[in-house]
């Protein structure tokens, strides 16, 4: 039985993309950061990217990295905490400028400008911008390992399914565009002219499609990617993980493993505090349910630390349990 993420992720020929999913506040960001740090120590060039709008990589690494692009926090370890608002703002300005440049306009036609401005209010724009940044980093392929900290569960799944939906939409658009191109060619031939104009829309679509398919290819290929769920030994988390497993299955993804976080240490059993010993007994009963329901899917356990793990020292401590499997369960 595999115990610890080293044999799954850091082995020779291991996955190049790792995704941590799960409810908010359970330790996705900490797990992502700890794995990324362990991989960097193992001489891999790593990008740890937080897609969570309430991400806390800045807190964990004790540095303000929000919206600053790729920041090297340790040798080989780069982290990104995306500022989706700023990215959407810059993107909108770029689109407007492009229209002005293409048609030599001083002002954008009011109805077009109103449309562009109203699209900023669309909540999915921010998810799309984050998703686009993820796909962009992956397509550039500058890193040996990409660790993505997904937004809390529902959004995370939506973000993953978005890749498929967008790919089929872009394919439909390409089809229509190719049809239009065929008609251009027929008209040119009938007129006895040569069609020299290239369809720039087709080129744009091709670029978008290439970017999206890099991501979906990684996602679908089990040897290229690994999905982990982070959960805690509480019944609410058990139910949520069951639902997540179903959702993963429904979109054709299989889980590489479950990381059990915030596990109370064994010596809590004999604690003189009734509060602590009661919590421990409750955890024991949930552990039995976890073993029965998920069994071998659990691949690592991280104990509840006396203080929040922060900074590289804190992450090294987390990595001992997450990556090297120091805490054994059953």
């Amino acid at each position: 039985m595999v115990w610890g993420l080293r044999d799954i992720v850091l082995r020779e020929g291991g996955p190049r993309m790792v995704i941590f999913a799960g409810k908010g506040g359970l330790g996705k960001t900490t797990s992502s950061a700890a794995l990324a740090y362990a991989a960097a120590l193992a001489k891999k060039k790593v990008l740890c990217f937080s897609t969570d709008p309430q991400a806390s990589l800045s807190d964990i690494f004790e540095r303000n990295i929000f919206g600053k692009g790729e920041v090297e926090v340790a040798p080989n370890l780069y982290v990104v905490e995306i500022d989706a608002d700023a990215k959407v703002g810059a993107y909108i300005e770029e689109v407007k400028q492009r229209i002005k440049d293409m048609y030599k306009l001083e002002e954008i036609p009011p109805e077009i400008e109103a449309y562009i401005d109203s699209s900023v209010a669309e909540p999915a724009m921010y998810e799309s911008a984050t998703y686009d940044a993820m796909a962009d980093y992956l397509a550039r392929g500058d890193y040996d390992l990409y660790v993505f900290d997904m937004p809390p569960f529902g959004h995370g799944i939506r973000m993953l399914t978005m890749a498929d939906v967008l790919t089929s939409w872009v394919e439909k658009l390409t089809e229509v565009r190719e049809k239009a191109r065929e008609y251009d060619e027929i008209a040119s031939k009938l007129k006895g002219e040569r069609l020299v104009k290239e369809d720039e829309i087709l080129n744009e679509l091709k670029q978008i499609r290439d970017k999206l398919t890099t991501f979906t290819d990684f996602m679908r290929e089990r040897t290229k990617s690994a999905f982990f769920m982070v959960m805690t030994p509480e019944m609410m988390s058990v139910h949520d993980t069951e639902r997540a497993l179903e959702a993963f299955k429904s979109i054709g993804l299989s889980l590489a493993g479950i990381v059990l976080n915030k596990v109370l240490p064994r010596d809590f059993h004999s604690s003189p505090s009734p509060y602590i010993s009661y919590r421990y007994r409750q955890q024991e009963s949930v552990m039995r349910v976890i073993e029965e329901k998920f069994g071998d899917l659990v691949v690592a356990a991280i104990p509840m630390f006396p203080r929040e793990p922060k900074g590289l020292d804190g992450l090294r401590e987390v990595a001992k349990h997450l990556v090297d499997g120091v805490t054994k369960l059953w």
């Binding site: 229209i99 293409m102 036609p109 077009i112 449309y115 699209s119 724009m125 658009l173 829309i201 744009e204």
Partner: peptide
């Protein structure tokens, strides 16, 4: 633009500049 819901407009906006003359 006409009230038909479509996918998130992120990638549409990238194509919008080409459609401007025909809108």
């Amino acid at each position: 633009m006409l009230g038909f819901p479509i996918l998130p407009p992120y990638y549409s906006l990238r194509l919008l500049p080409y459609a401007v003359p025909n809108v």
